[in-house]
């Protein structure tokens, strides 16, 4: 794979946790991965396989690891916290299992908030409308999160993540709290984002029914055995 097509690359990344007993638990062991542009990547693995830990590292949320994480040509490990914040703010998007919409803001305002964080002043309204339209919730713009269903909330969270046109979106178990049909809708949305906007979407799941939709499927348990995936 050509480097210019790769948005995110992991080189020999390892992460372990110190347990109370004094033992060290190796969660990620010498892992090397590459993520191309504009692809839906699904990382699968059973509970405790390290999916979330991997996402934390890739999303510049966790800086305590060994190895390299190169995002768009920059080694995250060597950047200052402010620079990582800047990357998360402008170039990355996050969708959480627990949705995490701001409860006192409407759907419109949640998306607006995300655009404000990147300092956007012009055309914000257009971008908000575009994002909400993309997720099919234009008519629910003035509704608060708890006036929406679980799936609708998740779609607002996606709209919030994509409104600023990030280069990559990390979604950790985004369908975990949704029914199968709704989960499918969400993943289809991710695929469309990947194809239409060239955004790389990295999502984790243990839902076997969604695996076929991935452009790239990474089985974390296998990688941990083999050490490398290309």
């Amino acid at each position: 794979m050509d480097d210019k097509d790769v948005i995110l690359k992991l080189n020999n990344v390892s992460k372990s946790f110190l347990l109370r007993s004094g033992e060290r638990l190796e969660v990620i062991d010498d892992m090397s991965l590459s993520f191309p542009l504009g692809q839906l990547v699904i990382i699968k693995g059973r509970s405790g396989s390290g999916k979330t830990t991997l996402l934390n590292i890739m999303g510049a949320l966790d800086n305590d690891y060994s190895g390299e994480v190169i995002f768009d040509g920059r080694n995250l490990n060597t950047l200052k916290e402010e620079e990582r914040e800047q990357i998360r703010r402008c170039e990355m998007g996050f969708v959480f299992q627990s949705v995490a919409l701001i409860p006192i803001m409407t759907a419109y305002e949640n998306v607006d908030f995300a655009l404000r964080t990147v300092g956007m002043t012009d055309d914000r309204e257009d971008k908000i409308k575009e994002a909400l339209e993309l997720v099919g919730l234009s008519e629910r713009a003035t509704h608060y999160p708890f006036q929406l269903s679980g799936g609708e909330q998740q779609r607002v969270a996606i709209a919030r993540a994509i409104a600023k046109k990030p280069k990559i979106i990390f979604a950790d178990e985004p369908t975990g709290a949704l029914d199968t049909m709704t989960g499918l809708v969400v993943v289809k949305l991710f695929k469309e984002l990947a194809y239409r906007y060239g955004i790389t979407v990295v999502m984790t799941t243990h839902d076997e029914g969604l695996m076929d939709m991935a452009d790239i499927l990474i089985n974390l348990e296998e990688i941990n055995r083999r050490g490398t995936y290309e």
């Binding site: 979330t52 996402l55 949320l61 966790d62 299992q97 950790d172 975990g176």
Partner: peptide, 11 residues
């Protein structure tokens, strides 16, 4: 801790 608070991952 951001990762603990937003509970990235399985709940």
């Amino acid at each position: 801790k951001i990762t603990e608070v937003i509970k990235l991952g399985e709940d």
